[in-house]
Simulated scan of single mutants.
Amino acid sequence: MLLDVKLPVYYIFKRILPDILRVLLISIIFQVLKWFFSSYLPEIPLQLATILGSSISLLLAFNVSQSYERWWEGRKIWGAVVNDSRTLVLQVRSFQQADGLPPHEAASQLTAVAHRQIAWCYSLGESLRGQDPLASLAKFLPEPELAYAKTQNNRPLALLALHAAQFRELHQRQTINTFQQVQLDSTLVRLCESMGQAERIKSTVFPANYRLLVHFLIYLFLGTLSLSLVESMGFWEVPVLLLIASTFFLIERTARYLQDPFNNAPTDTPVTAIARNVEINLKQLLQEPNVPATLTSDTFYLM
């Protein structure tokens, strides 16, 4: 996630540099044609470039709007993950206290749920980013649960299954009653829904033909604009065209990066930082001594 700090210039322009160089080449070609083959250049009215530019602006506005909506949906999903993770541990603690379990057994059951939920948050974020979802599990899971998770393709789903098995065992031992098990299962359902929604965003990409069409239309507009300005502005057509091209390509590239909020890029939803906050909250609820610090960044983004 980009932070509210001054973005470095290299980050802003390095992604569009190849496109800017192509536009510069087009502009130079038209300048050469103007000086040596001016009779062969077609006269294109500036109104045509204006119409094309207005149409492309509408397409880019729609693209940015849809892309931001996907990014914001991803952020809302992880907000729900935080809420339900806290709710799950609070429910387990409250239900066990109400049933008067021995303190050591209640603490053991609560620690197992909390650590497994922390592992689930880290594992889900790593899975969405295409990283190894087992990377963070060894710190939070006992060896039998870790071995079980390794046998599953969907590791976050495996952890939810372990949650469900533990709650079923608690109900069979009459540690929790039927109503309490239903409440816990409802929280698991919400966690599973959040996981599915995030996976839907990850697996559903914008059509490539739409992106290529927008890219082609931008080049068509810039070529038309260059032909329109080369006669009236002379050499000044080059910097003016590059400035306009930078604006259009920056908007288009911003929309492209917002389309995937789980791409392990600076524009991502900060799933690792959110999982760390969940870890801090749950470990403090357990009154554990080794609570990690909140993730901070010395750059312009937070992952």
Results as ranks from 00 to 15, higher is better:
residue 2 L to Q: 09
residue 3 L to D: 04
residue 5 V to E: 04
residue 6 K to A: 04
residue 6 K to Q: 03
residue 8 P to F: 01
residue 10 Y to C: 00
residue 14 K to N: 05
residue 17 L to D: 02
residue 18 P to I: 03
residue 21 L to F: 07
residue 23 V to E: 01
residue 25 L to V: 08
residue 27 S to D: 10
residue 27 S to N: 09
residue 37 F to G: 02
residue 43 E to M: 13
residue 51 I to E: 10
residue 57 S to V: 13
residue 63 N to L: 11
residue 70 R to F: 04
residue 75 R to V: 01
residue 88 L to F: 13
residue 89 V to I: 15
residue 90 L to F: 15
residue 92 V to M: 14
residue 93 R to G: 15
residue 96 Q to E: 11
residue 101 L to S: 04
residue 101 L to G: 05
residue 103 P to T: 13
residue 103 P to S: 12
residue 104 H to S: 12
residue 105 E to M: 14
residue 105 E to F: 11
residue 112 A to N: 14
residue 114 A to N: 06
residue 122 Y to T: 02
residue 125 G to K: 02
residue 128 L to K: 06
residue 135 A to P: 08
residue 142 P to R: 09
residue 146 L to P: 01
residue 147 A to H: 03
residue 148 Y to M: 06
residue 151 T to V: 09
residue 155 R to F: 01
residue 157 L to W: 09
residue 165 A to Q: 13
residue 168 R to F: 07
residue 192 C to M: 11
residue 193 E to R: 13
residue 193 E to P: 03
residue 196 G to K: 12
residue 197 Q to R: 15
residue 198 A to H: 07
residue 199 E to Q: 15
residue 201 I to F: 10
residue 207 P to Q: 02
residue 212 L to E: 09
residue 212 L to V: 03
residue 216 F to H: 07
residue 217 L to N: 06
residue 219 Y to L: 12
residue 221 F to G: 03
residue 222 L to R: 01
residue 223 G to M: 13
residue 225 L to H: 02
residue 229 L to Q: 14
residue 236 W to C: 03
residue 237 E to Q: 15
residue 241 L to M: 13
residue 244 I to N: 14
residue 245 A to K: 07
residue 256 R to T: 11
residue 256 R to H: 10
residue 258 L to P: 02
residue 258 L to V: 10
residue 272 T to Y: 06
residue 274 I to S: 01
residue 284 Q to A: 15
residue 299 T to C: 02
residue 303 M to P: 01
